[in-house]
Amino acid sequence: MIIDHPLLGPRDSSEFTYLGDAKLIERPDPDAETATRDFYEYAYLRDNPAGWHEELWFHEAGDRSWLVVTRNTLTHEISKVEMARDVARGKGRSK
């Protein structure tokens, strides 16, 4: 499997480590009324789709950047690769 790194170009997936669902970027607000429930869901509950899935990959043997990879879990086809920091900032994080 080849991951097309947005900065470095196509790299073998053996250079990366897998973290899982990219929803981990959306950390709940600890001050919310429902924080206990929110963090329970954030930490433990995951969808496990057979099909397209946005997931976090770490380029450990490369530039050590975090990526959001949109991958089809049935075919391993990859449709989109983005820098995780760009995704996070797009969601209003890191301000």
Binding site: E15, E60, A61, G62, D63, R64
Partner: peptide, 10 residues
């Protein structure tokens, strides 16, 4: 410049 792994070392 490339960052890579040599002998399991970054």
């Amino acid at each position: 410049v490339r960052r890579t792994v040599i002998h399991q070392l970054g």
